[in-house]
Write a protein that binds this DNA or RNA. Structure first.
Lengths: 142, 142
DNA sequence: GTAGAGCTTGACGCGGGCGTCAGGGCAAGG
DNA sequence: CCTTGCCCTGACGCCCGCGTCAAGCTCTAC
């Protein structure tokens, strides 16, 4: 099959396939015209790459999986190098999720604090003297 | 104070300050030499920007906070526009964390499955006939 | 005078994964 | 013959927050 068909069947683009080839991930045979030719096994490799990409793996991180499949193994993760990538990724994910959780908490606290301050200001304005000049920057107090 | 001192006091670089100025975020006065001149209030703005950057806010997202401070408010998040940014960011963080958690779970399952398969293969190899040829790709089974 | 530190603007590089345009080829169908 | 559709290579663009180099100016100290 030619590049357009493979791209369509994998839900990607010809540009992407040429890019993968340029990175040495998915080399292609050529027919007489110089056109790239692919077969079903290439589709499998490509699907493996795409799945991992969807998981947020970098292209280089998919390489062990691809090479594992190309070596004849039934799954891309049948090889130790692939498992290593899994483990590394798990660690990165855990770290990242923890960091994002901490940031989320911080931002949540800031928001709560700032909202409380605004309420306090409003109460001040309602009680003692004149209303405090409100911030005019975008949005308004709703 | 001049750009180098401000950068040092904020723990950043002169390049970064010039970049912020080019984005209109932190404009600077000039003295006779054409050198940029800053004061303490600029340091406050800069610290606000840096704090938000460390939280993963984009530069544009820090703008409401900076303008809020410049408008004379005591905190960068004293204005509704800033609160909106907080809320939006919280939503983005929640979404992202949830997505990453889902990916983490997927990857974890894949890893468990692949490891189980390898163990099964090893057991097969130990029992019936000859050992199955091991995958030679990097790392080894540890 | 001269060396050095610090300042100026301008412009390119980077990382990742492509999108998109430019310019051209080849085969089939009307 | 000409169009249509698919293919080819090469190269620039994008996003973002700067790093880094180039070439030149100013001010201070010795």
């Amino acid at each position: 099959m030619r590049i357009g068909e493979l791209a369509a069947r994998a839900g990607t683009t010809t540009r992407t396939l040429r890019y993968y080839e340029s990175r040495g991930l998915l080399p292609a045979r050529r027919n007489g015209n110089g056109h790239r030719t692919y077969d079903e096994s290439d589709l499998r490799l490509l699907r493996q790459i795409r799945t991992l990409q969807d998981f947020g793996f970098g292209l280089e991180e998919t390489r062990p999986f691809v090479e594992c499949l190309r070596a004849g193994h039934p799954e891309g993760d049948s090889c130790p190098a692939s498992l290593q990538v899994y483990r590394r990724k798990l660690g990165e994910l855990d770290t990242l999720i923890a960091e994002l959780g901490a940031v989320r908490e911080q931002v949540g606290r800031q928001l709560a604090r700032a909202e409380a301050a605004r309420v306090a200001l409003a109460a001040d304005a309602a009680v003692p003297g004149g209303p405090v000049p409100e911030c005019e920057l975008g949005g308004g107090p709703r």
